[in-house]
Design a protein around this nucleic acid. Structure first.
Lengths: 341, 341
DNA sequence: CAAGCTTGCTCAATCGATGAAGCAAGAATT
DNA sequence: AATTCTTGCTTCATCGATTGAGCAAGCTTG
């Protein structure tokens, strides 16, 4: 062991000097292709022993500078505050490592400026591929990547310039809406139009879910009231405020609600609690998102769980196939067994 | 714009050729110290314009290889599946960027092998400092870092070899236990010893929380039954199973419970639901962790919320002060206003 | 035993950005 | 007019790992 307080890190040249050989041999041994380079196993063992003793760690910057491929794969993600993005990130890291890639992930807080900044930084780090998850402006990112000759993919929200993997929001929302309407009929004795709350009207997913929401109403012959579609944003406070405002309207608030994310559900639940509806079985809820505690809320809330493993499988398939055309792949979400009220 | 499908990325040499100048001048202009290097603002503007046009992106590997400091800061984190680690990661990224550092984060799933592997990789990327969050073997990581001349810090779980920033688990658990006991007295008419469930007996935090749990019982003159301390691991299934087993014991299950994390709470809630205690006010719960939905569960569950901003402030203070001694800094957790039952 | 082959290495160029040192041309000073 | 100073650049070595090319020694083969 080197007990000297070292200011410089050990390099292959240091190891070469210690082993009485050349840096070239050390490099070959340590990156595993010493058989190809016809290094004797004697020397290989000696070098590996010395490297171990010295606590040698590769300088990746130097290595990457020389090599053609970086094996770095980047992902930008809006938030870490819910199970959906959390599981995307966790599984993405896992799948990337399983393929010999080094994942770097950064959170951009749904801030378009930060997204661009993050993408630029990742390009500087020579990512081979960049996954834009739930990006506010995916096409901007695709353009930046294209300019640098780097592949990009969209996840969760689609873009027009790169392949996108998203949930089948329309079908998921239609089924969720159908279930809420059925529950509503069963519990309240009648089927009344629902409230849609949460998300941004400008984002593709919300638009598709609203389309599914309308379709399910139409399927069952129920008319949708426009004043009951509140794409007020995702934040809990926004949902809470939107409900307050809607409650002031001329018509009564619907008893059934389609909530566009667990984040918005948080605000809805706070509002319900505040307005004294908690534990009141007269409210029939459904959420396009999944969180284990929601099951436990006990209000018989229906959930749609996006198929994260399915989506990431598609993402890596696209990466491996080298596809670049701007197709949109829709992955059906999972709808767990209906909750009892 | 360069419309040719480029296989090579633009470098400062390309820009230099286009601008009719030297790579050195381009470098000076693009990294902002062209005034120091006495480049005319005319040339600077020209270079910046051309760089913009060409969509130039710095090759960080080359830049870092040359520079003395990498400005990369690494963090390893066990999971992304709860609010605590989610907010640590999100805020860490933010604070790192605010200080001009590039954060890289990786999730190690509480797997000691993966922790070591991740640390080695981060060292290869020349991190200047590595934060081991909730590591199973923090000292191993500190040793690896020390061998490479890299600073390391522990967060959430302490180590013996590097500075550690953790919650004041003892005080937090004592206060949480006190509150659960008080609630129990109020709701059930009597103060009975509680059940402790979740966490690993071998981890520092769980041990300290059990100590606080005992202290609060002692404060109020209540005896703790050993069979009611179930450090069964964090996973929901483990908590659920432990409760099943404990329920078979000779003595009745306590009505009051101290649950060591929201992850374990998930299992406890499932068990409660399964065994028919849901919405039963006879159970009095508290959780050493925070999640917005838990408030909404409506069982009047007390929570302890770890002070993530406070802890990360300490972390960056330590980094900036250059401290290296293995001290343990305890940050008092926040205990939100008591929930009504 | 000369020519060719194999084995086991070393040499040196290279990746792209950086910055100390140097140089030429003009401005200021003596 | 000769000297020094300033301005605005360029040249080149360098960071550490990688890899094609090359070379010397030993081994085969005809």
């Amino acid at each position: 062991m080197n007990h000297v307080k070292q200011t410089k890190r050990t390099t292959i040249y240091d190891l070469a000097a210690l082993a009485g050989t050349s840096a070239s041999a050390v490099s070959a041994v340590l990156n595993g292709n010493w058989k190809k380079r016809r290094i004797s196993s004697q020397l290989a063992e000696k070098i590996m022993r010395i490297a171990e003793e010295q606590g040698y760690a590769l300088n990746m910057q130097a290595s990457l500078l020389r090599r053609e491929k970086s094996h770095i794969i980047g992902m930008i993600v809006p938030k870490y505050d819910n199970r959906y993005f959390g599981s995307i990130v966790e599984l993405f890291e896992d799948m990337a490592r399983a393929r010999g890639l080094f994942p770097i992930i950064t959170c951009t807080r749904r801030d378009p400026e930060l997204e661009v900044e993050a993408a630029r930084t990742m390009l500087s780090y020579q990512v081979e591929c960049l996954i834009a998850t739930g990006a506010t402006d995916p096409d901007r990112i695709t353009e930046m990547c294209a300019a640098a000759g780097v592949r990009s993919l969209n996840l969760d929200l689609p873009g027009a310039l790169a392949p996108s993997v998203i949930s089948d929001n329309f079908a998921g929302a239609r089924e969720l809406t159908r279930r809420i309407l059925k529950n509503s009929e069963q519990r309240l004795g009648k089927m009344e139009p629902l409230l849609f709350i949460g998300g941004r009207g400008s984002d593709h997913n919300t638009a598709e879910r609203i389309r599914g929401f309308r379709a399910a109403h139409a399927d069952l012959g129920v008319a949708v009231h426009e004043e009951n579609i509140l794409a007020c944003g995702y934040a809990p406070e926004k949902a809470e405020k939107a409900l307050d405002e809607r409650a002031l309207g001329a018509n009564a608030l619907p008893k059934g609600m389609f909530i566009n994310s667990t984040i918005s559900l948080e605000g809805v639940m706070r509002w319900i609690r505040r307005s004294g509806h908690l534990d009141d079985r007269s409210l029939v809820l459904g959420c396009f998102d999944w969180d284990p505690f929601v099951t436990l809320l006990g209000n018989g809330i229906e959930m749609v769980r996006q198929d994260v493993p399915g989506m990431l499988n598609k993402v890596f398939e696209l990466i491996e196939s080298g596809a670049n055309k701007p197709i949109v792949i829709q992955v059906p979400p999972l709808i767990p067994e209906a909750q009892d009220a």
